[in-house]
């Protein structure tokens, strides 16, 4: 089973994790891999914590992984990386968007957004902090931070020789294609 790669994407409902995993899995499929992707719908989408898992290799059985099995954890939000870190293989990588979203207890002043999460993450695993939000903002649309993160993932996972442009084209509206492609390229450089 060692050949199967496991990618775990986590974030907050509305951040575009599902679209990212869709692009990721269709591209991997076209590159000839067996692919399984699992997402959670429903209640969690109302501002809750969301995860999707993408697995690929020669032959994939389970669409989901257990704890300690992700080769890479791509977190669209800082605190979510810590929430899901037990799913990461201790030798695996973290890519984390340097962007925080307050959850309900924090918004209402009942709790504070924990400080120093990035430092803690770096102590626990190989962590790359990516300014995807800032990059997307500079490009003119904060929505494309998910594609910036996709770029960062592709770079880290050495998946450059896959036709990403095609996959992005097939999954975003034509009028947003250019900005998404730019976001992708920026992500690879971060």
């Amino acid at each position: 089973m060692s050949k199967v790669k496991n990618i775990l994407l986590v974030g907050v409902g509305g951040q575009g994790t599902i679209l990212t995993s869709k692009i990721l899995s269709t591209a991997l499929l076209d590159a000839g891999y067996d692919v399984k992707m699992s997402e959670v719908h429903g209640m969690a989408q109302r501002g809750g914590s969301v995860t999707t898992q993408v697995r690929y290799g020669e032959k994939v059985y389970s669409p989901i992984i257990g704890k300690g099995q992700a080769d890479i954890l791509v977190s669209f939000e800082v605190m979510e990386a810590m929430r899901w870190i037990d799913y990461l293989n201790p030798d695996g990588d973290i890519i984390v968007n340097n962007y925080s979203i307050n959850s309900a207890p924090i918004l209402s002043g009942k709790a504070e957004y924990p400080s120093g999460i990035l430092e803690e993450l770096s102590k626990k695993a190989k962590t790359k902090v990516v300014d995807a939000f800032k990059t997307a903002e500079e490009l003119g649309n904060i929505k494309v931070q998910n594609i910036v993160l996709l770029g960062a993932l592709v770079k880290k996972f050495k998946l450059d020789d896959i036709n990403w442009e095609e996959a992005i084209k097939n999954n975003v509206k034509p009028k947003f294609l250019e900005i998404n492609l730019k976001a992708f390229e920026s992500g690879k450089e971060l």
Partner: peptide, 16 residues
Amino acid sequence: TDRIEIVKEKVVSRPP
């Protein structure tokens, strides 16, 4: 499986 422990103080719940 080997896994990394969550640092509990660094996580606040995120209910819908």
